[in-house]
Design a protein around this nucleic acid. Structure first.
Lengths: 191, 191
DNA sequence: TGGAGATTAGGACGTTTGTCCTAAATTAGT
DNA sequence: ACTAATTTAGGACAAACGTCCTAATCTCCA
């Protein structure tokens, strides 16, 4: 059995805590205690909090890229691929209602902290944006492809935000269906 | 001249710092130093951080209520009133691109902290939701009024989130126009 | 004018924070 | 089996945190 390295266990636990508690509110001790590690051991792998943050962002970028690639393999039609993205809202709705969107809330927190890693956190958004853009291009959206991509990204962000505030399950389902409907009303093929 | 009380100066500065830096990341000392107050003076007005938070939320509720009331007075048509709400995105776009939406980001942070005040923070959202609902009802949206209200609220949240991530000014204008367009496509009068 | 109450100043407390250090234990290669 | 490198343990540090305290100052009404 491939034992997960301590370093990776730290990254995954930090990923979870940064999402569920927040970056600033999560301390070294919290992560170490959650894993049963000594602080010295922890320090051997990550010397500063920013190093962990960078590792977590890189980890999220990898996971996101892998997920998008998988959708390309399993869903031939661009429309279905976009609906895979929308389905994130449904699949993860419990976590979203409790903690919001992991990408959006981290980006917002780092922006307020004026943190150097804000740019890297935004790369996760950029990954989704570019992937969605290429799907819309494949659908024939032409020059509007990126605007459509940002629109869908923004839509999902808004849903996550409001769903978290009101803990409203029905709202998520309704808006997810709304995105699908909107997709069908698009005037496509070409500018 | 009506001198602003120390208590109100604290509330307003805390309001700003909670928005621009975050609740958790703003310390007593930060607020006191920004106002040139001693910590003892500060402590006389607010004994705990939660007390300041409650006061800031109450202050925001008051400001929001006053803003919505003013729109009722100056804009007779419900459609125009809704557009007043949308225009917040344009008017405050510089702050939104830097710090996101004050309501959404505070709500998200308190949710992660599992803070008792999360419910009260959500009341600001509820204020907007109920006001928008009554505007849509006046437009003849019937049973769908609240769904429309949440949709607009969610839409603006998404725009703030993405605009903050990418610092994208054009996107804000494009989406604000998109909300106005969507308003006109609504099938109204009747449930 | 005097005295009560509100306001301000600033020191002090115990914790927790991120960071750093040394030393023991484990692992890996020869 | 011996060495070298990696990993783990846990103590120590200054700084900052929220909170509390007492003493000085100001304000205002009797």
């Amino acid at each position: 059995m491939p034992k997960v390295s301590t370093r990776n266990r730290i990254i995954q636990k930090a990923d979870t805590l940064f999402y569920e508690v927040g970056f600033e509110a999560t301390s070294f001790a919290d992560i170490a205690a959650a894993l049963g590690l000594s602080r010295g051991n922890f320090y051997h792998h990550f010397r500063t909090k920013d190093e962990i943050l960078d590792a977590v962002i890189a980890y999220r970028l990898d996971k996101t890229w892998a997920m998008l690639s998988a959708w390309e393999d399993t869903s031939p039609a661009p429309r279905n691929r976009i609906l895979c993205f929308v389905r994130i809202l449904i699949v993860n709705r419990d976590k979203i209602m409790a903690f919001g969107c992991p990408v959006g809330t981290l980006s917002a927190e780092l922006a307020k902290l004026n943190h150097a890693a804000h740019g890297r956190a935004t790369e996760i958004f950029a990954l989704f944006r570019d992937w969605l853009t290429s799907q819309f291009r494949a659908l024939g959206a032409g020059k509007q492809a990126e605007a459509h991509a940002l629109h869908v990204l923004s839509w999902s962000q808004g849903v996550a935000s409001i769903a978290a505030a009101f803990r409203d399950d029905a709202f998520i389902h309704r808006e997810a269906a709304g995105i699908a409907d909107w997709l069908d009303t698009l005037k496509l093929q070409g500018d």
